[in-house]
Design a protein around this nucleic acid. Structure first.
Lengths: 343, 343
DNA sequence: CTGTTAGCGCATTCAA
DNA sequence: TTGAATGCGCTAACAG
């Protein structure tokens, strides 16, 4: 029995292993591993023999076996609520591209339809070295709890949690700036449309809205709390048309909402921004195309993804968590819907 | 030496293994595995002890080890060119949700910035059981070649390859229908904007464009070959404004292109659809918001993703490839930009 | 420069 | 109902 080959292999190309490659090349598995990893030193001729064998057998290494041996998945997890609109996609693109550069594959999970998020996250944790999670709603706490600190986590655009890294875009200041801009147009009855409690991002934007009022010693009205779905826009518009809500300017939680409201109002014959100004957040593509153009705020979403991927990578490499949240600057984009003259 | 515990474990919760759990629960690792997999039969009390231990140690199983043992990654790969616009995102959402339902995680790869696509794909193949790839450009051939039939592959919206499954949305017929609709408006100088050679989808749409002309015994003009990037739209519009291109209707390869052209033309004072009609493809959000609304074609993109995930799953389960491409129906969406009266 | 060997952590026979 | 033993395919010392 002694040193009998434990891996008899089958000539079948499907299922070629490092053993079959080694045998074919007439070398040991260690040598195969070396040339494939580019580690150690192998003579050119030997290396070529191995490469040939790999080619002939069409050898595809088993990632799981490698992961088990190196004790790393070489994969990052990303948990997003969903993928509608450009925001999440941009984020994902940034994340994926940076992760790929760092040699990490990315396993994506959408919280959307999952009945048991915590379970899904634990399952994810099983296959990745670290996890980034977008901060909307209750996701990060759920994720953090499910992981119990077992894996590095970074929260993207969410409320920082005790001991968890986070990266996000600046909100409060630009919201204040944007609101002040609208106030400077002489508008007096501003309404914040969106639910500050729906997401930390929104809460911060609302805070900026409030601050802009305070700075002028004005009393901000209570926010119109609606989810920031496109569909909600029509309903809000209806309430305005019905006189149920009164305002001469709407500061919306995001562009989708702003666009839906603006469009609906215009269809009903209202003049935007003449009778009522509307501003949004995100600078989605549509905002450039509608008339008047939507005044909004642009966030460095892609960079957020890049940053998250980098943070995870550093953590996996043994780096210490950087607990001060990293905040990326945003940019107010003025177009016509706020009342500014259109060119 | 004999039967000494090979896995000394460390009380450290980080890195709990099936061994530490077993020890803590006072059972064997086989039992731990059984209760965690819900396989075999374990007494209620024993099971509870295990569960408690899992909880206390905060045990997160190592997916790689499981994969190695069960000889499955329990993950599907998805290769997309990029993620701009709603198309890819929708597809991804469908794919992810269905994959998740089937207990598979999804590893995403964006071809976008990758210098060596083939290499990246082989790397991906290392960690998944099967791969779905979007059919634009040269991706699927490259992927297929890189895999050499080692893993099940399904091509989404691409040219079917010998022996490879594919799913896609119907193109030619609806393109013909759309073109005929424009012709029926009395337009005579139609131009197809987009590169038929850029993607198989586009080629089919162009074929439909041509067929609609043939049916009326009209000679279709040569296509205006441009990549379907938003940026290209402006250039095309400029050529039209300069009189370099003449047309009374534009059938564009997708909405982004159509919107950019239409907007540019309108800015220059042209009447759309009065002087020139414009139609697109995809029914992106913006198309509903612009004036006139963009006439376009809606595809069941999400379903495409769902289907792809299902196909992969069946294949991994040992099912035979279904070689006839599966084709999902699309829907022409008439709005105002084609010349139809706006409500 | 190359081969031997010992795990990596889990699922799974096979006995008991 | 449970435990002992084996192997999944690969990496990484350690020898030679």
């Amino acid at each position: 029995m002694a040193t009998a080959r434990k891996h008899p292999d089958g000539a079948a190309s499907a299922g070629a292993t490092i053993y079959s490659v080694a045998e074919r090349a007439g070398v040991s598995i260690a040598t195969v591993s070396r040339v494939l990893q580019g580690a150690g030193t192998v003579s050119t001729t030997t290396a070529q023999k191995v490469l040939d064998a790999v080619d002939q057998l069409n050898y595809v290494p088993l990632g799981a076996a490698r992961s088990l041996a190196v004790r790393h998945h070489e994969a990052h997890g990303l948990v997003l609520p969903e993928l509608t609109g450009p925001y999440y996609s941009e984020l994902l693109m940034g994340f994926e591209s940076r992760a790929a550069e760092l040699g990490q594959s990315v396993t994506l999970m959408l919280a959307d339809g999952k009945a048991d998020l915590a379970r899904a996250v634990r399952q994810l944790a099983t296959r990745v070295d670290a996890i980034a999670v977008l901060g909307s709603a209750a996701m990060p706490p759920a994720v953090a709890r499910a992981l119990h600190g077992q894996k590095p986590v970074v929260i993207i655009a969410g409320t920082p949690q005790e001991g968890i890294e986070s990266v996000r875009a600046e909100n409060a200041h630009s919201a204040e700036q944007l609101t002040e801009h609208v106030l400077a147009h002489g508008r007096t009855r501003l309404l914040f449309v969106g639910d500050p409690e729906g997401a930390p991002d929104i809460a911060e934007r609302h805070a900026g809205f409030v601050n802009a009022h305070r700075a002028r010693r004005l009393e901000p009205a209570a926010p119109v709390r609606v989810p920031f779905r496109e569909g909600e826009g029509a309903a809000v518009a209806e309430r305005i048309l019905a006189g149920e809500i009164e305002a001469d300017a709407l500061v919306c939680a995001n562009d989708e909402l702003a666009l839906a409201i603006m469009s609906h109002l215009q269809d009903a014959g209202r003049d935007v921004p003449g009778e009522i100004a509307v501003v949004g957040w995100d600078d989605v593509m549509t905002s450039r195309y509608v008339r008047p153009g939507l005044t909004t705020v642009r966030q460095p979403v892609r960079e957020l993804g890049v940053l998250a991927a980098e943070r995870l990578h550093q953590r996996v490499a043994g780096g210490q968590p950087r607990l001060e949240p990293q905040i990326l600057p945003t940019e107010v984009v003025i177009r016509g819907s706020c009342g500014c003259p259109t060119r």
